[in-house]
């Protein structure tokens, strides 16, 4: 993300270890840091999850309100995804309106939810053209140590997975769980001197040349991708990232349950 200053010694250290095929925290190239998911973390949200990947800590909550549908989709619910890089999480995050990093993060997660059609939006219609459920997914980064994309996406999936639509409190019948059709999972890797490293730490992100997020569903089909940073990937590296995402995505999906 934001290119912060990094000491030359640390930079050298990462490069020298990488030349020997090692990472600073002794992980394999395709190994995630320890992951914990706390579902239903916030009672005031309709669905929520706090996800930690190593030291990276993200809180995602879902709120549902009733509103008007868009004119071109009169019988579909509305999705809105927002990410806040709050200054609590990093000395480099500042308060104020969302910057390009938080907008990219929110949009990548939003596409993963929207374009994968994981939520059956038609069942979020109350009365065509008049009333639909509006689903707000808010992502808050609490502690930033790299790989926000996967932490935020995993958090969003875990939060959506336990979201109950509050119909009863709004006099719209009985509460029902959010109708989820797919469970896409994202896996992010960076390229450093032609090595591919999955789940980069903040230090690894700082020396990374390019970043690729691949989102796959339970069938191994691709659902979303995003390449970032100024460097490049070879076609072989992209294939490697896709295969890794399919393989690791299956393991991560089990954590959501």
């Amino acid at each position: 993300m934001a290119r912060a200053i990094m000491s030359e010694i640390k930079k050298d250290h990462i490069h020298k270890l990488l030349a020997k095929g090692r990472r600073v925290d002794n992980r394999a190239w395709d190994e995630f840091r320890p992951i914990t998911i706390l579902p239903n973390y916030i009672e005031t949200a309709e669905g929520s999850a706090r996800v930690k990947i190593g030291n990276t800590d993200v809180l995602v909550g879902v709120k549902m309100t009733i509103g008007e549908p868009f004119a071109d989709t009169p019988n579909k619910g509305v999705l809105s995804t927002n990410a806040e890089l709050i200054p609590l999480a990093s000395p480099n995050f500042e308060s104020g309106p969302p910057d390009e990093n938080s907008i990219e993060l929110a949009r990548v997660v939003d596409r993963g939810i929207r374009e994968s059609q994981m939520v059956d939006l038609e069942s979020l219609c109350i009365e065509p053209q008049k009333e639909v459920w509006i689903m707000f997914t808010d992502i808050y980064v609490l502690d930033y140590d790299g790989n926000l994309f996967d932490a935020a996406f995993l958090g969003a999936m875990a939060a959506l997975n336990n979201t109950m639509v509050p119909a009863k409190a709004n006099d719209r019948g009985d509460d029902f769980p959010l109708p989820i059709k797919h469970m896409p999972i994202s896996v992010t890797a960076v390229q450093i001197e032609n090595s591919i490293l999955v789940d980069p730490t903040l230090d690894e992100e700082k020396v990374a040349e390019a970043r690729l997020t691949v989102t796959t569903d339970e069938n191994g089909d691709l659902r979303a991708m995003q390449k970032g940073l100024a460097g490049a990937f070879s076609l072989d590296q992209i294939t490697k990232c896709v295969e890794t995402s399919q393989r690791l995505g299956n393991d991560l999906r089990k954590l959501i349950g």
């Binding site: 909550g61 927002n82 308060s95 808010d138």
Partner: peptide, 18 residues
Amino acid sequence: CKYNMIAFSVSDRKRPGP
């Protein structure tokens, strides 16, 4: 000090920001 309530900390979603 910056005190902030996150969007889903209350029953009606709070718009992010001060």
